[in-house]
Amino acid sequence: MLEKLLRKKTAETETSLSDRVQSVKSKQVPSHVAIIMDGNGRWARQRSLPRIAGHHEGMKTVRKITRIANDLGIKVLTLYAFSTENWKRPKMEIDFLMKLPGEFLSTYLPELIERNVKVEMIGNYDALPEHTKESIQKAVEATSRNDGLILNFAMNYGSRLEIVNTVKEIAKLAVEKKISIEDIDESMIEAHLMTAHLPEPDLLIRTSGEVRLSNFMLWQLAYTEFSFVDVLWPDFDEDCMVGAIEEFQMRSRRFGNVEGEKL
């Protein structure tokens, strides 16, 4: 009897979520959603587990959120996987984090290909360990012809370094007299960012209840809507994701205008 009730409850929940997904899709869906995946360590600590257990559980959440983002019709999902500041963490934790892309992609790559997901990465690729680079490159090549959701991992990424490198590239062009100072404008800067080929994020979600950007996409987030969710990343599920999109759709995006644009 209990098993039957649990099955019925699960079916009702799935139906409810399915209805919400269809409702969300009938309105304007954010083209690009960026997520700061925070709270793996606290999730593990609350359960008296090592931090790496939280990271492993968080990997499962990446799969769930990628699937629901694809179902919702989101075009780009950027996940802040490892920052340039994360190298300060204990070596054992870093070593584990550097193995996660290989584990995730080797496990779920067939599903990503089947779902027409295209894997990309922004960040300092060259500084990553060889096994991490090989795993990412394999997934990028295997999904390069896909034209559905772009699953964009920010790996060894820091926005200030990205901006500094952009300034250097443009300064080099000026020194070589390929451009003049008057040519430098916002569009030129955007063209030299790692995200030049992507739309700017419409929505940024940060999990765990923390309210800060942590050196993530500082230029690109100028007019992005923010959602700070008091849920640890391993507990952030499809219902949370749909809820964040529903909240986004209720907002009026102004872009500096008085009236703004109602979604």
Rank of each mutant, 00 (worst) to 15 (best):
M1F: 10
L2Y: 11
E3W: 10
E3C: 02
E3T: 05
K4V: 11
R7K: 15
E12Q: 12
E14R: 13
E14Q: 14
T15N: 14
S16W: 06
D19W: 07
V21K: 07
Q22F: 06
Q22L: 12
S23V: 03
S23E: 14
S26K: 14
S26A: 15
K27E: 10
K27L: 13
Q28I: 13
V29L: 14
V33P: 01
A34D: 00
I36H: 02
M37W: 07
M37E: 03
G39I: 01
G39P: 04
W43S: 00
A44D: 08
P50H: 06
P50T: 08
R51T: 12
G54F: 07
H55A: 07
H55L: 07
E57D: 12
E57S: 14
M59N: 09
M59V: 14
M59W: 03
K60R: 14
T61N: 05
V62G: 01
R63D: 05
I65E: 00
I65D: 00
I65T: 07
T66G: 03
I68C: 01
A69F: 00
L72V: 09
L77N: 00
L79P: 02
S83V: 02
T84L: 07
E85K: 02
R89Y: 05
R89H: 09
K91P: 04
D95R: 12
M98T: 06
M98V: 09
L105H: 06
L109V: 05
V117Q: 09
K118P: 04
K118A: 04
V119Y: 01
E120V: 01
M121N: 05
I122S: 09
N124M: 05
H131C: 11
V140M: 14
V140F: 04
V140T: 11
S144C: 04
N152E: 06
A154G: 09
V164R: 13
T166P: 10
T166A: 14
V167A: 12
K168F: 12
E169T: 14
V175Q: 13
V175T: 11
K177C: 11
K177G: 12
K178A: 08
K178G: 09
E182W: 07
D183V: 01
D183N: 12
I189M: 14
E190N: 09
L193S: 03
P201M: 03
P201C: 06
I205C: 11
T207M: 02
T207H: 02
S208M: 01
S208L: 00
E210A: 13
V211P: 00
R212M: 12
R212H: 11
L218C: 08
Q220H: 13
T224Y: 00
V231R: 02
P234L: 03
F236N: 02
M241W: 10
M241Y: 13
V242A: 06
M250P: 00
R253N: 08
R254C: 08
V258A: 10
V258S: 08
V258Y: 11
E261Y: 14
K262C: 12
